[in-house]
Design a protein around this nucleic acid. Sequence first.
DNA 1: TATGAATGAGAGTTCATTCAT
DNA 2: GATGAATGAACTCTCATTCAT
Lengths: 218, 218, 218, 218
Amino acid sequence: MTSAGPASPPATARGRRTRSALLAAGRELFEECGFSAVGIDAVAQRAGVSHGTFYTWFDSKEMLLREIISEVAADIFSATSIGSRLPADAAYARIEAANRSFLRAVTRHSRILRVLDSLADTREDFLRLRLEIRESFVQRGMEGLIRLQELGLADPQLPPRATASALGAMVESFAHLWQDPVEGLDEAAAVDVLTRLWAGAIGLAPRAWPGGGRAGAG
Amino acid sequence: MTSAGPASPPATARGRRTRSALLAAGRELFEECGFSAVGIDAVAQRAGVSHGTFYTWFDSKEMLLREIISEVAADIFSATSIGSRLPADAAYARIEAANRSFLRAVTRHSRILRVLDSLADTREDFLRLRLEIRESFVQRGMEGLIRLQELGLADPQLPPRATASALGAMVESFAHLWQDPVEGLDEAAAVDVLTRLWAGAIGLAPRAWPGGGRAGAG
Amino acid sequence: MTSAGPASPPATARGRRTRSALLAAGRELFEECGFSAVGIDAVAQRAGVSHGTFYTWFDSKEMLLREIISEVAADIFSATSIGSRLPADAAYARIEAANRSFLRAVTRHSRILRVLDSLADTREDFLRLRLEIRESFVQRGMEGLIRLQELGLADPQLPPRATASALGAMVESFAHLWQDPVEGLDEAAAVDVLTRLWAGAIGLAPRAWPGGGRAGAG
Amino acid sequence: MTSAGPASPPATARGRRTRSALLAAGRELFEECGFSAVGIDAVAQRAGVSHGTFYTWFDSKEMLLREIISEVAADIFSATSIGSRLPADAAYARIEAANRSFLRAVTRHSRILRVLDSLADTREDFLRLRLEIRESFVQRGMEGLIRLQELGLADPQLPPRATASALGAMVESFAHLWQDPVEGLDEAAAVDVLTRLWAGAIGLAPRAWPGGGRAGAG
DNA sequence: TATGAATGAGAGTTCATTCAT
DNA sequence: GATGAATGAACTCTCATTCAT
């Protein structure tokens, strides 16, 4: 996780308030307009401070974004690391729980993550940041898959890393596309579909499915 | 598909050459640096003409990108519409063929598609363009799924549109992550994994798999 | 009168036609948009020839204007030099005739004269051109005034040159303000007012007025 | 009168100084070179600031001009609205006073008014501004004429509006032509001539003239 | 003669950043 | 800490003019 220190840490209550206001204003504006379309003027104005004050708290526009993203990353990390305290045989339920919390986390930060994406395209450091965020979820999926393969509950021919990458991307992309309850799917339904797809994809054994197997297909 | 007409079409061979050179230079630079980091000067210089000449052929930087993307879109459309002349029962093979050509097409244009992505974030018109490009593949996947569901060869509980969206996103995202033969997967292996995931995800019936079923799992 | 030679004189009928078309197009556009807002492109396009052809016939945009103005100047000169063959005692009628023809001439060329004005402001050569055009009318007014003063028919205290300048400017300005039949005055009425003002201004003796004097004023 | 607000009003003495310097520099340069020939760089340089600073105080070159002209307009308005506290029978003296102050005001701003003229030719908004400036003087002349006509002291056949327009234009044009003490006329003489012409033009009754009538003519 | 592509100086404008107060 | 004025590099775009064909 990249550290994104302030120009100098706030020493007073007023300083803390100003800094937070800038952080919040920046996040809102980046989400609304993207990175390059947002000027320092706009950030300062929305935070209710003058132009120059921005540089009291941040070294640059980029550092502001970096710090915003740090917060987002921390939130996503915590979303992907909790849970998993389910009994080992409840594979399906664990996948479902993981999908739900990741879907929620990504949806919550969808817009700012896309801002990050657009910078990750050309900037090495942001790319690393981007991959780190994904990694926590992918890692977890990979470990789960390996365990299931070892237990003979998942298709042993699947390469764990690539599989987790692909399925992680599936969930994440879906979260972005799904912005608002598009396609008539509420969260529960979305999680349901994604989990069925995931479970099927890794060939999760019928006895590990809720109801003991998959309905309908041959 | 948005039309992206030139200021005026070239009337001479020299004009055609210059225009192409600008198009090629633009594509290279956008891929290397992203949209906003590329100046007209750089494009003109790489094309070997003066910067004023750029405006002989394009109304703006944006129009240049639009035209580049038109070419990309056309290429992806053709990649996703050919084939599928396999016998109706060879479901797995058809999915595999579709995945292969889409994976190839997206990989081929990976960088420029990400440039498009970054603009799609804040610009309505580019977003539409982006969705159109995806749509051709999603549409095809959806139709295939519906047919299989009707034949009783795929999980009937899956909502076709959302499923095709999610799986399409999986393939596309994988293509982006997979930039260079990362993870030790060559194209054949990548297509194999993705197709296995896809087939499993939709619950493709064992008798439609190559070898009559999936190895190993439960 | 400033000569405004072409880059080279037209040697063929086609050449003559092209040249005229450019001249006409230039005049129309200058009148519609002013000098600096008109591009060579626009002139060429309206004349129905290609961009580069313009320079076959004119050295520069400025030379085009110069030539257009030459035509205008010639027209105004002829308008201010004809007539005056009225009997010497018909002073009022002569003033009226001069005013009418000048008013007409200026009205006819009102817009292009203002284009000239705007350049005359900062360009010595155009200023000279501008003054020359005025001069023909002023000169005539001055000579008339001197004759009338000598005959004891006009206020002898008026300095001829300044008086003719001021009254000439009055007629000319009126022509510009009067663009279209504004103020409900038709040409006859306008000429009538201007002539009454002129005659009164120079103190034209009552016996030289139509009807032997001015109505009403004590 | 069009308002021409700054981007934001200066909050410090330094800001006020800079803004004034830009205004003064702009006025000088517009007067010397005309509007379109003056670049922002030149204005900034003459004001002794960097060109970016210009945009701290003005939104555009056009707005700079607009503000300069606002000042001019205000000055001319005040010049044409004061005075007229002379006894009602002193018609000639009142005309003379009005002519003097208008002549002075226009002379003072001659060059910038011509810049305005050149823009008024093609730009609706500047035209309106131009007419407003004239209007204050014309209006006053018209009202004066009507009163004199009612008192039987001026030619009743003259249409007030057109008459005031024409005579106003006479004075204004004279001011422009008269740039420097050309024609050997000093201000007093110029005012004298213009007032004689004006008084004669409207047929001001002899008893209202200084000395009880006009010397010499018929 | 006519064409249309190429040129490049120069325009107006933006904005991240610096700094004296 | 906060302010707001100043900076200047960089940007997109225009257009009068040149010239090979």
